[in-house]
Structure formats: structure tokens, C-alpha cells
């Protein structure tokens, strides 16, 4: 349970928001923004897109807060919203790749770059190599089936346990374990294949 700045529990905060004290939502945003952002970047691999999507996730959660019954933890609930929003965004992007490419060119003036933080005084060649490797890993992740990809993102990016992933995905721990195994096998095959191609 969240012990906020006012020593309030999470459910108390939610009740206050529902009563009209909208500013209390800030407590939930500050607490969960990093985890929502990590989920989004795990699916989208772009900082700006992940920022925008995180914003949408919190707005959607705020608008549906009256539907939150407290049957699961707020974290589980908001993770579900973040996963669904990310999957929808990925589906939209894959449906209109040409439009997205044109849009990114028009909006930013050049093709959107994959987000990899640059280290101070890093050699430009190293940055390029790292970018290439990032694309290679991200392409392998992106070709996984949706449920395997969700399990991998929640495990690797959000560092969640199988139990937590099972709650978010509304399935059993055994099913998540099987899903993770299949995802890792698929990832190993995809990574090895593309590694040999790019060598």
C-alpha cells in the first residue's frame, strides 16, 4: 500500500480523487510514472513516444477511476492499462508503417531515432554500433507474439515476478512460466539468426 506524503493509503487517495479532489491524482502519477514509462518504452523503444503514451495511460486511468473496484492493486490495474495502450499503439503503427514514416519525417524533420542514452565523451563509432545493436534487439523483440512480448517486457523492463505478471495478464503463474520459456526460445532463435545475418 502506498504511504503518500499525507500518510494516506492508496484507496484513501482514490476516494478523495473520486470526491473531486483531483490534485491528489498527482500522488499516484508521481508514484507510478516510471513504471508506466518503462512498460511503454519496452514496447515502443522511443522516449518521446513513451512519454506521450504514458500521459495517455494516466489520463485514461483518471477517466476510468470510478470503474476501479479495488479487487486488484492499483499498480496491477494501471499496468493493464499501460500494456493495452502499448499494444494498441504497436498495432496502429504496424497497420500504417508508411504513414508513420512520413509523419515522423514531417514532424521531426528526420526519421525518429531509437532511444539509447549516450554516455559522456563516447566515441561516435561506438554510438553507431550501439544503435545498430539496439535495432537488432528491438526488431527481435517486436516480432514476438503479443502475449510473449508482454511477458518479456514486464519481466525484463519492469522487473516483475511471474506472480505479478500473471495478475496483470489475468492468467496463472504456470501459464506465464510457459509463455516466458517460449518467448526466450523464440528470442534466442531470432537473435541468433539475425546475428549471423549481420555478422
Amino acid at each position: 500500500m502506498l504511504q503518500g506524503r499525507d500518510e494516506m493509503t492508496e484507496s484513501e487517495v482514490i476516494v478523495m480523487i473520486l470526491k473531486g479532489n483531483q490534485d491528489k491524482y498527482r500522488i499516484l502519477v508521481e508514484k507510478y510514472q516510471t513504471m508506466v514509462f518503462r512498460t511503454c518504452i519496452g514496447f515502443l523503444h522511443n522516449k518521446d513516444d513513451a512519454d506521450d503514451l504514458s500521459q495517455e495511460v494516466f489520463i485514461q486511468a483518471y477517466q476510468s477511476l470510478n470503474k476501479f473496484k479495488g479487487e486488484s492493486a492499483f499498480a496491477t490495474w494501471i499496468y493493464r492499462i499501460a500494456v493495452n495502450a502499448s499494444l494498441n499503439k504497436v498495432r496502429r503503427n504496424s497497420r500504417s508503417p508508411i504513414f508513420n514514416r512520413l509523419n515522423s519525417l514531417l514532424v521531426t524533420g528526420n526519421e525518429r531515432e531509437i532511444s539509447v542514452p549516450a554516455f559522456d565523451n563516447e566515441d561516435p563509432e561506438n554510438i553507431l554500433i550501439r544503435l545498430e545493436k539496439s535495432k537488432w534487439i528491438q526488431n527481435a523483440l517486436d516480432t514476438l507474439p503479443e502475449n510473449q512480448r508482454t511477458a518479456i517486457v514486464l519481466s525484463k523492463y519492469d522487473d516483475l515476478s511471474q506472480k505479478e505478471i500473471a495478475e496483470i495478464m489475468n492468467t496463472t503463474e504456470g501459464a506465464v512460466e510457459a509463455l516466458m520459456q517460449r518467448a526466450k526460445t523464440n528470442l534466442r532463435i531470432k537473435l541468433s539468426t539475425s546475428y549471423k545475418k549481420n555478422r
Binding site: I41, G42, H45, K47, V116, R130, K133, I137, Y157
Partner: peptide, 9 residues
């Protein structure tokens, strides 16, 4: 690579 992405805030 995943850890680098995780480091983005």
C-alpha cells in the same frame, strides 16, 4: 541494450 533502455527516465 535492455538495461540501457531501462535507464531512460
Amino acid at each position: 541494450i535492455i538495461n540501457q533502455e531501462r535507464a531512460i527516465l
